[in-house]
Amino acid sequence: MISRFTYFKPHNLNEAVQYLEKEENAFVLAGGTDLMILLRRNLINAEHILDIKALPEMDLFNFVDGAGLTIGASVVVNRVVDSEVVSAKYPALHQAAASLASFQLRNRATVVGNICNASPGADLPPALLVYDAVVNITGPQGTRQVPLNEFFTGVKRTVLQRGELVVSVQLPEPGAGDKSVYLRQARLRGHDLATVGIACRLKPDGKVAIGIGAVAPTPKRLFALEDKINERGISKETIEWAAQEIREHIHPITDVRSSAQYRLQIASVLLKRGLLSLIGKEE
């Protein structure tokens, strides 16, 4: 049915890196919920599959006071959904994770896979972006850290070089009183990518962060909009203004899921709804 490939499941990270460096057409397998679709539709010709699920580094999922949250590359989305510390400290991430695909897929799909697949409409990146997530990468040249905001380079493209693997994604600890929310609009629940997905965060110092998906070639932090909102100071009036202003900061396209015009409109609605909920106001 699908490409004929060799399958390699190392227990040692160095072996994994060496394999990826050496082999042409090698693909990384974690949950497989994106990779298997590409294979089954014959969209890629894989000669080698590297399964990372036996690498101990990839299974790390912990929260350390002061250091924050680390999510290893083989941690599945439902582990994040079920995590009390994520619900308490990173509500937008919990909500984004709980809205991703369907229950069975969340038992396989990984958080890091959702990043590495680099879909413009992926659910988790907007939530991870508002927490200033950092991607831990290892490769032939050693390890490096890339802010998630600089990780995506285009539709389905990332900064990863040949031989490089993402080991984990790391989120700094939010201060006490930090609030966040993830809202998504989709044509139907459970079986569709988001038409627009937006994460809003209100930090204890009153500053906001906004991450958005499906309105540009990559998921984005809207830094320029955040600065303008923060200059004005968060209030119901500022939010009304921001809901119009966001149209100047995103560049959606028309595709099978939605027209560009609808995306502009729904982004405006979701931003307003999200920010209002964070300051405890109704529409």
Binding site: Y7, G32, M36, S102, F103, N107, R108
Partner: peptide
């Protein structure tokens, strides 16, 4: 055949998963 419909759902290590998008070798 793409994990969308759930007809192929089985229980693997206690979790419901769609067996159409899992490789047999992953079930070692």
């Amino acid at each position: 055949g793409e994990g969308e419909c759930g007809a192929c759902t089985i229980i693997m290590n206690g979790k419901a998963v769609t067996s159409c998008i899992i490789l047999a070798v992953e079930a070692e």
